Amino acid sequence: MASQGTKRSYEQMETDGERQNATEIRASVGKMIDGIGRFYIQMCTELKLSDYEGRLIQNSLTIERMVLSAFDERRNKYLEEHPSAGKDPKKTGGPIYKRVDRKWMRELVLYDKEEIRRIWRQANNGDDATAGLTHMMIWHSNLNDTTYQRTRALVRTGMDPRMCSLMQGSTLPRRSGAAGAAVKGVGTMVMELIRMIKRGINDRNFWRGENGRKTRSAYERMCNILKGKFQTAAQRAMMDQVRESRNPGNAEIEDLIFLARSALILRGSVAHKSCLPACVYGPAVASGYDFEKEGYSLVGIDPFKLLQNSQVYSLIRPNENPAHKSQLVWMACNSAAFEDLRVLSFIRGTKVSPRGKLSTRGVQIASNENMDAMESSTLELRSRYWAIRTRSGGNTNQQRASAGQISVQPAFSVQRNLPFDKPTIMAAFTGNTEGRTSDMRAEIIRMMEGAKPEEMSFQGRGVFELSDERAANPIVPSFDMSNEGSYFFGDNAEEYDN
């Protein structure tokens, strides 16, 4: 993207840094990872977990959730003011799984939030270390993106479920800051804005008074975040219109849905970061690795190297396929839920299948599930090659597409044709070009129609051997075009429920 120079890199967003050079960025990201790792080690000690239990991804998720809940100030305040039966607002906890007599047992633990905050700050040299908290939120978000298709949420806001490739980060909490905003897809931002506008339509006082002023500035800020994701002048001009509207209503909703559809071809720039579970960072720190000293990046080879040398386990339900569970977590670790499966298959070195073909449910185990038949197995999170994460949407291309997802959002900077089903997408653009945004709409449609099938995206960008740390010898991959490109292809993934 041309304006790259004016933006802070995501590592800076990730670490609240002012302008830093590459070495400083690597050190501050490393410091953040160190903090998460030290916190995780301490929690495993508190909970008396064995090494194996500490490497269980379900335990990692519970521990991450506990610290996120302990620092969720708004919710904590709300819980104190609106006490609900049987919930102690000062405590947080969740299921911890232990191996007892050759069987997995679930144990519900409860801790004072104050105590968890103390352990977290102690692991982070006394700081609140917001960057580390956001990092864990993005890992949870990436896992949700890989596990669930947001059909219901899309339909509720009037969008087409086939636009799911635009929904990265749709389950990120509001408090995820600049680093969170960077990884949100165009569809996620559109959905947040539509929800806001709908509230304004239904509630006369939404934009009024002292609160209304705050609401208005939040609305304009979200519009600017979305505008910054678009790469064409016409899309940005249309966002200006939406932002400046005196009284946002149905016309703005129409414009936003139009823009979301246009992003299936004229893709937005959305950041991709490899955020790993805390149970990967903990053992690495415990083994003596100093992330701050060595430096770390979320968008280069580092996460690949770390996963190459990590042992992570997962509980497996009786009829689940461990290899499929591994694929789910591998995609989440690489922030690749909406990437082209052919690119992923090449990088991973084994075939990556669409969601609907995987015999696996989510990673988390519900409290009512029976533990008797639970097994555990090693997650295979290694890769054959590594590639640089991208934040450009890439230019655009036609490809055989599917009944489910009709476009992709690249996660890796790797040369390819970008699949999208042009006739299906263009069919949504018939007729409606009147109104105050008509010239911009016409211009956007013209650009979409001009998108050429034979153009290559990320020209000359390749993948790298894991021994090639400096990215000196790019390998331009070859793809098996007979395979499906979309992950949520004609899909039956479970729906995400809060």
Rank of each mutant, 00 (worst) to 15 (best):
P453L: 09
M66Y: 10
R19N: 10
A401N: 00
R117V: 00
R391P: 11
T396Q: 01
P423D: 00
P89N: 03
P283V: 00
M32W: 10
I444G: 00
T6E: 11
L47T: 15
V270M: 10
I257C: 09
V352P: 15
C275F: 04
A123S: 00
A411E: 03
I388P: 03
K325T: 15
E53M: 12
T437I: 15
D491Q: 09
L341A: 12
T92Q: 08
P318G: 14
E443P: 07
A471P: 08
R246F: 07
G30P: 02
M163N: 14
E220R: 11
L154A: 04
K184N: 14
E292D: 12
D302Q: 01
D255S: 11
S287V: 10
S457T: 03
M159D: 13
D302A: 02
E454V: 15
G295K: 13
A260S: 06
R162I: 15
S262Q: 07
R416W: 12
R121Q: 02
M163P: 07
A178K: 00
I41R: 01
D145N: 15
S383A: 00
F304I: 14
V299S: 05
P277N: 07
Q405L: 02
A278T: 08
K357C: 03
R99H: 14
T146F: 12
D421C: 15
S269C: 03
I36R: 02
E469K: 08
G30Y: 05
M331N: 07
A428L: 03
R243T: 00
D127P: 05
V343M: 06
L154S: 04
G35I: 07
S69L: 09
L306M: 04
G228R: 09
L226T: 11
D255V: 05
Y385G: 00
T430M: 15
A251R: 02
I475K: 02
Y289P: 09
S335K: 06
G485A: 00
R156H: 09
R361L: 04
T134R: 07
V363Q: 09
F39C: 13
A366P: 05
L49Q: 01
F420A: 02
N473L: 01
G490S: 08
A336G: 09
D240N: 15
K90P: 05
S176M: 11
M105A: 02
G362M: 11
N205R: 09
K198W: 10
V299H: 10
V183E: 14
G185R: 04
E53V: 08
I119H: 02
L328I: 09
D240H: 04
T437Q: 07
R342S: 07
L143F: 05
R74S: 08
K214L: 05
R102S: 15
G35T: 12
I201C: 02
T62M: 11
Y496F: 08
G295I: 10
Y385C: 03
S50I: 03
W330R: 03
T433K: 00
R267Y: 12
P410E: 08
F304K: 12
V408W: 09
G177Y: 09
L56D: 13
G362S: 08
I36L: 01
K229T: 01
F489C: 05
F412T: 12
M222G: 12
Q168H: 08
E114D: 15
T134E: 10
D127V: 13
A451G: 13
T15F: 10
T360R: 10
N59R: 00
V414D: 10
S376F: 08
E484F: 03
Y40W: 12
R391Y: 06
Q459I: 05
N21T: 15
E210P: 05
G393W: 10
L133F: 08
E114F: 00
G93H: 06
Y496Q: 13
M239W: 05
D88Q: 03
D468M: 10
G94M: 10
S3D: 02
K113S: 03
M163W: 09
N397L: 04
Q231Y: 04
C333M: 02
P322G: 03
F230Q: 15
